[in-house]
Nucleic acid binder design. Sequence first.
DNA 1: ATTGTATCGGTTGTATACAATTTAATTGTT
DNA 2: AACAATTAAATTGTATACAACCGATACAAT
Lengths: 143, 143
Amino acid sequence: MMEDLEQLKLKNQLCFPLYACAKEVVRRYRPFLDELDLTYTQYIVMLVLWEENEKSVHDLGERLFLDSGTLTPVLKSLEAKGYLTRRRSKADERVLLVALTDEGQALKESAAEIPKKMSACVALEPQEAATLYSLLYKMLGQF
Amino acid sequence: MMEDLEQLKLKNQLCFPLYACAKEVVRRYRPFLDELDLTYTQYIVMLVLWEENEKSVHDLGERLFLDSGTLTPVLKSLEAKGYLTRRRSKADERVLLVALTDEGQALKESAAEIPKKMSACVALEPQEAATLYSLLYKMLGQF
DNA sequence: ATTGTATCGGTTGTATACAATTTAATTGTT
DNA sequence: AACAATTAAATTGTATACAACCGATACAAT
Protein backbone atom coordinates (compact mmCIF):
# COMPACT_ATOMS: atom_id res chain seq x y z
CA MET A 1 0.00 0.00 0.00
CA MET A 2 0.97 3.60 -0.60
CA GLU A 3 0.96 4.54 3.09
CA ASP A 4 3.36 1.70 3.85
CA LEU A 5 5.87 3.02 1.35
CA GLU A 6 5.40 6.53 2.73
CA GLN A 7 6.40 5.23 6.16
CA LEU A 8 9.68 4.01 4.70
CA LYS A 9 10.86 7.58 4.21
CA LEU A 10 13.65 8.47 6.61
CA LYS A 11 11.79 11.55 7.82
CA ASN A 12 8.83 9.40 8.89
CA GLN A 13 10.90 7.10 11.07
CA LEU A 14 11.10 7.59 14.81
CA CYS A 15 14.00 5.23 15.27
CA PHE A 16 16.40 7.13 13.07
CA PRO A 17 16.57 10.41 15.03
CA LEU A 18 16.84 8.31 18.17
CA TYR A 19 19.78 6.40 16.73
CA ALA A 20 21.47 9.47 15.27
CA CYS A 21 20.90 11.65 18.33
CA ALA A 22 22.30 9.04 20.71
CA LYS A 23 25.42 8.70 18.58
CA GLU A 24 25.94 12.45 18.30
CA VAL A 25 25.45 13.07 22.00
CA VAL A 26 27.89 10.32 22.93
CA ARG A 27 30.32 11.87 20.49
CA ARG A 28 29.94 15.22 22.32
CA TYR A 29 31.07 13.51 25.51
CA ARG A 30 34.38 12.47 24.02
CA PRO A 31 36.43 15.65 24.65
CA PHE A 32 35.32 15.74 28.29
CA LEU A 33 35.84 12.02 28.82
CA ASP A 34 39.23 12.10 27.10
CA GLU A 35 40.47 14.20 30.00
CA LEU A 36 39.60 11.30 32.32
CA ASP A 37 40.91 8.67 29.90
CA LEU A 38 37.42 7.14 29.74
CA THR A 39 35.20 6.09 26.86
CA TYR A 40 31.45 6.61 27.15
CA THR A 41 30.84 2.94 27.94
CA GLN A 42 33.54 3.02 30.60
CA TYR A 43 31.99 6.23 31.96
CA ILE A 44 28.51 4.76 32.48
CA VAL A 45 30.06 1.76 34.23
CA MET A 46 31.83 4.20 36.55
CA LEU A 47 28.55 6.09 37.09
CA VAL A 48 26.97 2.92 38.48
CA LEU A 49 29.97 2.09 40.63
CA TRP A 50 30.17 5.63 42.02
CA GLU A 51 26.64 5.03 43.26
CA GLU A 52 27.01 1.49 44.52
CA ASN A 53 30.72 0.70 44.78
CA GLU A 54 30.38 -3.02 44.24
CA LYS A 55 28.27 -4.81 41.63
CA SER A 56 28.25 -8.10 39.78
CA VAL A 57 28.73 -8.13 36.02
CA HIS A 58 25.19 -9.39 35.72
CA ASP A 59 23.71 -6.52 37.76
CA LEU A 60 25.82 -3.98 35.89
CA GLY A 61 24.49 -5.44 32.67
CA GLU A 62 20.86 -5.17 33.76
CA ARG A 63 21.36 -1.60 34.83
CA LEU A 64 23.16 -0.57 31.65
CA PHE A 65 21.40 -2.80 29.09
CA LEU A 66 24.71 -4.47 28.25
CA ASP A 67 25.72 -8.12 28.23
CA SER A 68 28.93 -9.82 29.32
CA GLY A 69 30.21 -9.82 25.76
CA THR A 70 30.39 -6.05 25.95
CA LEU A 71 31.14 -5.65 29.63
CA THR A 72 33.99 -8.13 30.03
CA PRO A 73 36.47 -6.21 27.87
CA VAL A 74 35.31 -2.86 29.27
CA LEU A 75 35.79 -4.06 32.84
CA LYS A 76 39.20 -5.53 32.04
CA SER A 77 40.20 -2.22 30.55
CA LEU A 78 39.02 -0.30 33.64
CA GLU A 79 40.89 -2.79 35.80
CA ALA A 80 44.03 -2.19 33.72
CA LYS A 81 43.65 1.55 34.30
CA GLY A 82 43.53 0.85 38.03
CA TYR A 83 39.98 2.14 38.57
CA LEU A 84 38.41 -1.13 39.73
CA THR A 85 39.09 -4.67 40.87
CA ARG A 86 37.50 -7.89 39.63
CA ARG A 87 37.11 -10.86 41.96
CA ARG A 88 34.87 -13.89 42.20
CA SER A 89 32.17 -13.94 44.85
CA LYS A 90 32.87 -16.27 47.76
CA ALA A 91 29.20 -17.13 48.05
CA ASP A 92 28.83 -17.99 44.36
CA GLU A 93 31.93 -18.64 42.32
CA ARG A 94 30.07 -17.96 39.09
CA VAL A 95 29.59 -14.33 40.02
CA LEU A 96 32.28 -11.79 39.34
CA LEU A 97 32.20 -8.78 41.63
CA VAL A 98 33.48 -5.46 40.42
CA ALA A 99 34.53 -2.84 42.99
CA LEU A 100 36.11 0.58 42.80
CA THR A 101 39.69 1.16 43.86
CA ASP A 102 40.58 4.34 45.76
CA GLU A 103 41.74 5.75 42.47
CA GLY A 104 38.39 4.87 40.91
CA GLN A 105 36.59 6.56 43.78
CA ALA A 106 38.75 9.62 43.48
CA LEU A 107 37.94 9.92 39.78
CA LYS A 108 34.39 10.84 40.74
CA GLU A 109 35.54 14.32 41.77
CA SER A 110 37.11 14.89 38.36
CA ALA A 111 33.93 13.74 36.66
CA ALA A 112 31.65 16.00 38.68
CA GLU A 113 31.77 18.82 36.12
CA ILE A 114 30.87 16.68 33.15
CA PRO A 115 27.06 16.67 33.40
CA LYS A 116 27.03 20.46 33.63
CA LYS A 117 29.34 20.82 30.63
CA MET A 118 27.23 18.38 28.64
CA SER A 119 23.90 20.02 29.40
CA ALA A 120 25.41 23.24 28.09
CA CYS A 121 25.82 21.40 24.77
CA VAL A 122 22.16 20.41 24.57
CA ALA A 123 19.82 23.06 23.22
CA LEU A 124 16.68 21.85 24.98
CA GLU A 125 14.81 23.86 27.59
CA PRO A 126 14.64 22.19 31.02
CA GLN A 127 10.98 21.38 30.44
CA GLU A 128 11.73 19.82 27.07
CA ALA A 129 14.58 17.80 28.51
CA ALA A 130 12.24 16.52 31.21
CA THR A 131 9.66 15.50 28.61
CA LEU A 132 12.29 13.77 26.50
CA TYR A 133 13.60 11.99 29.59
CA SER A 134 10.22 10.69 30.57
CA LEU A 135 9.31 9.51 27.08
CA LEU A 136 12.60 7.66 26.74
CA TYR A 137 12.10 5.91 30.07
CA LYS A 138 8.56 5.05 29.10
CA MET A 139 9.91 3.30 26.03
CA LEU A 140 12.71 1.64 27.97
CA GLY A 141 10.20 0.44 30.55
CA GLN A 142 8.65 -2.02 28.15
CA PHE A 143 11.94 -3.70 27.24
CA MET B 1 29.66 20.75 45.01
CA MET B 2 26.97 18.38 46.21
CA GLU B 3 24.64 19.11 43.31
CA ASP B 4 27.37 18.23 40.84
CA LEU B 5 27.77 14.79 42.37
CA GLU B 6 24.01 14.35 42.38
CA GLN B 7 24.00 14.95 38.62
CA LEU B 8 26.44 12.05 38.22
CA LYS B 9 23.72 9.56 39.19
CA LEU B 10 22.61 7.48 36.26
CA LYS B 11 18.97 8.35 36.82
CA ASN B 12 19.77 12.07 36.48
CA GLN B 13 21.41 11.71 33.10
CA LEU B 14 19.53 12.44 29.91
CA CYS B 15 22.11 10.86 27.66
CA PHE B 16 21.85 7.39 29.17
CA PRO B 17 18.19 6.63 28.34
CA LEU B 18 18.86 8.06 24.89
CA TYR B 19 21.81 5.74 24.41
CA ALA B 20 20.05 2.69 25.91
CA CYS B 21 16.77 3.32 24.10
CA ALA B 22 18.44 3.69 20.72
CA LYS B 23 20.30 0.43 21.20
CA GLU B 24 17.21 -1.46 22.32
CA VAL B 25 15.06 -0.17 19.49
CA VAL B 26 17.69 -1.06 16.91
CA ARG B 27 17.84 -4.51 18.50
CA ARG B 28 14.06 -4.84 18.01
CA TYR B 29 14.54 -4.30 14.28
CA ARG B 30 16.82 -7.30 13.98
CA PRO B 31 14.22 -10.08 13.53
CA PHE B 32 12.43 -8.07 10.84
CA LEU B 33 15.64 -7.05 9.09
CA ASP B 34 17.04 -10.58 9.25
CA GLU B 35 14.29 -11.60 6.84
CA LEU B 36 15.72 -9.11 4.32
CA ASP B 37 19.32 -10.02 5.16
CA LEU B 38 19.96 -6.41 6.23
CA THR B 39 21.53 -4.89 9.33
CA TYR B 40 20.11 -1.68 10.72
CA THR B 41 22.90 0.40 9.21
CA GLN B 42 22.38 -1.25 5.85
CA TYR B 43 18.64 -0.63 6.23
CA ILE B 44 18.94 3.12 6.74
CA VAL B 45 21.24 3.35 3.72
CA MET B 46 18.55 1.57 1.72
CA LEU B 47 15.91 3.95 3.11
CA VAL B 48 17.79 6.89 1.63
CA LEU B 49 18.34 5.16 -1.70
CA TRP B 50 14.70 4.11 -1.96
CA GLU B 51 13.92 7.81 -1.79
CA GLU B 52 16.63 9.12 -4.07
CA ASN B 53 18.07 6.20 -6.01
CA GLU B 54 21.52 7.71 -6.51
CA LYS B 55 23.66 9.47 -3.91
CA SER B 56 27.33 10.14 -3.26
CA VAL B 57 28.98 8.62 -0.20
CA HIS B 58 29.38 12.13 1.14
CA ASP B 59 25.68 12.97 0.81
CA LEU B 60 24.67 9.65 2.33
CA GLY B 61 26.95 10.42 5.23
CA GLU B 62 25.45 13.85 5.82
CA ARG B 63 21.96 12.44 5.72
CA LEU B 64 22.75 9.55 8.08
CA PHE B 65 25.36 11.17 10.34
CA LEU B 66 27.94 8.60 9.25
CA ASP B 67 31.43 9.01 7.80
CA SER B 68 33.25 7.11 5.07
CA GLY B 69 34.94 4.93 7.68
CA THR B 70 31.56 3.47 8.51
CA LEU B 71 29.90 3.74 5.12
CA THR B 72 32.60 2.23 2.93
CA PRO B 73 32.34 -1.31 4.37
CA VAL B 74 28.53 -1.07 4.59
CA LEU B 75 28.27 -0.02 0.94
CA LYS B 76 30.67 -2.76 -0.18
CA SER B 77 28.56 -5.26 1.69
CA LEU B 78 25.35 -4.01 0.03
CA GLU B 79 27.11 -4.15 -3.32
CA ALA B 80 28.13 -7.75 -2.61
CA LYS B 81 24.49 -8.60 -1.87
CA GLY B 82 23.58 -7.15 -5.25
CA TYR B 83 21.42 -4.31 -3.93
CA LEU B 84 23.50 -1.41 -5.25
CA THR B 85 26.33 -0.39 -7.54
CA ARG B 86 29.33 1.83 -6.78
CA ARG B 87 30.91 3.93 -9.50
CA ARG B 88 33.00 7.09 -9.68
CA SER B 89 31.35 10.26 -10.91
CA LYS B 90 32.40 11.32 -14.40
CA ALA B 91 32.20 14.98 -13.43
CA ASP B 92 34.37 14.60 -10.33
CA GLU B 93 36.50 11.51 -9.97
CA ARG B 94 36.73 11.97 -6.20
CA VAL B 95 33.04 11.33 -5.81
CA LEU B 96 31.69 7.79 -5.58
CA LEU B 97 28.08 7.44 -6.64
CA VAL B 98 25.93 4.73 -5.14
CA ALA B 99 22.82 3.60 -7.02
CA LEU B 100 20.22 0.89 -6.50
CA THR B 101 20.10 -2.19 -8.70
CA ASP B 102 16.73 -3.56 -9.78
CA GLU B 103 17.06 -6.05 -6.94
CA GLY B 104 17.68 -3.23 -4.51
CA GLN B 105 14.62 -1.39 -5.80
CA ALA B 106 12.53 -4.53 -5.51
CA LEU B 107 13.55 -4.98 -1.88
CA LYS B 108 11.54 -1.89 -1.03
CA GLU B 109 8.31 -3.86 -1.37
CA SER B 110 9.53 -6.45 1.11
CA ALA B 111 10.52 -3.70 3.55
CA ALA B 112 7.17 -1.91 3.36
CA GLU B 113 5.72 -3.77 6.34
CA ILE B 114 8.63 -3.07 8.68
CA PRO B 115 7.64 0.39 9.98
CA LYS B 116 4.18 -0.88 10.88
CA LYS B 117 5.60 -3.92 12.68
CA MET B 118 8.09 -1.73 14.55
CA SER B 119 5.56 0.84 15.68
CA ALA B 120 3.58 -2.03 17.16
CA CYS B 121 6.63 -2.70 19.34
CA VAL B 122 6.77 0.85 20.69
CA ALA B 123 4.41 1.59 23.58
CA LEU B 124 4.08 5.32 22.95
CA GLU B 125 0.82 7.01 22.01
CA PRO B 126 0.89 8.75 18.61
CA GLN B 127 1.00 12.13 20.34
CA GLU B 128 3.91 11.04 22.53
CA ALA B 129 5.77 9.65 19.55
CA ALA B 130 5.28 12.97 17.77
CA THR B 131 6.66 14.87 20.76
CA LEU B 132 9.64 12.56 21.05
CA TYR B 133 10.27 12.91 17.33
CA SER B 134 10.26 16.68 17.45
CA LEU B 135 12.51 16.89 20.52
CA LEU B 136 15.03 14.53 18.95
CA TYR B 137 15.13 16.57 15.76
CA LYS B 138 15.47 19.75 17.76
CA MET B 139 18.58 18.28 19.37
CA LEU B 140 19.90 16.95 16.08
CA GLY B 141 19.37 20.33 14.50
CA GLN B 142 22.14 21.92 16.49
CA PHE B 143 24.75 19.33 15.47
C1' DA C 1 50.89 27.11 -15.58
C1' DT C 2 52.16 26.22 -10.81
C1' DT C 3 51.65 25.58 -6.30
C1' DG C 4 49.19 25.45 -2.11
C1' DT C 5 44.61 24.16 -0.20
C1' DA C 6 40.47 21.73 0.17
C1' DT C 7 37.56 17.79 -0.66
C1' DC C 8 36.36 12.96 -1.28
C1' DG C 9 36.55 8.25 -0.26
C1' DG C 10 39.43 4.57 1.59
C1' DT C 11 42.37 2.54 5.24
C1' DT C 12 43.94 1.65 9.88
C1' DG C 13 43.44 1.20 14.71
C1' DT C 14 40.61 1.11 18.79
C1' DA C 15 36.38 0.32 21.16
C1' DT C 16 31.98 -1.09 21.31
C1' DA C 17 27.57 -4.17 20.73
C1' DC C 18 25.41 -8.44 20.39
C1' DA C 19 24.27 -13.28 18.99
C1' DA C 20 25.82 -17.76 19.77
C1' DT C 21 28.56 -20.93 22.07
C1' DT C 22 31.33 -22.67 25.93
C1' DT C 23 32.77 -23.64 30.64
C1' DA C 24 32.20 -23.67 35.41
C1' DA C 25 29.24 -23.47 39.28
C1' DT C 26 24.70 -23.83 41.38
C1' DT C 27 20.09 -25.37 41.95
C1' DG C 28 16.14 -28.41 41.49
C1' DT C 29 14.23 -32.99 41.18
C1' DT C 30 13.88 -37.20 42.01
C1' DA D 1 23.45 -38.59 46.21
C1' DA D 2 22.85 -38.28 41.08
C1' DC D 3 21.77 -35.86 37.32
C1' DA D 4 19.20 -32.57 34.55
C1' DA D 5 18.34 -27.79 34.06
C1' DT D 6 19.75 -23.21 34.97
C1' DT D 7 22.78 -19.41 35.59
C1' DA D 8 27.07 -16.35 35.27
C1' DA D 9 30.81 -14.85 32.83
C1' DA D 10 34.02 -15.46 29.12
C1' DT D 11 34.96 -16.31 24.32
C1' DT D 12 34.21 -16.11 19.34
C1' DG D 13 32.60 -14.06 15.22
C1' DT D 14 30.42 -10.31 12.77
C1' DA D 15 29.20 -5.57 12.15
C1' DT D 16 29.39 -1.10 13.37
C1' DA D 17 31.35 3.80 14.74
C1' DC D 18 34.76 7.12 14.70
C1' DA D 19 39.32 9.43 14.94
C1' DA D 20 43.35 9.95 12.42
C1' DC D 21 45.65 9.52 8.43
C1' DC D 22 46.43 8.73 3.31
C1' DG D 23 46.24 9.33 -1.74
C1' DA D 24 44.00 11.13 -5.59
C1' DT D 25 41.47 14.74 -7.62
C1' DA D 26 39.80 19.38 -7.97
C1' DC D 27 40.13 24.17 -7.10
C1' DA D 28 42.12 28.80 -6.15
C1' DA D 29 45.16 32.48 -6.43
C1' DT D 30 48.82 34.40 -8.02
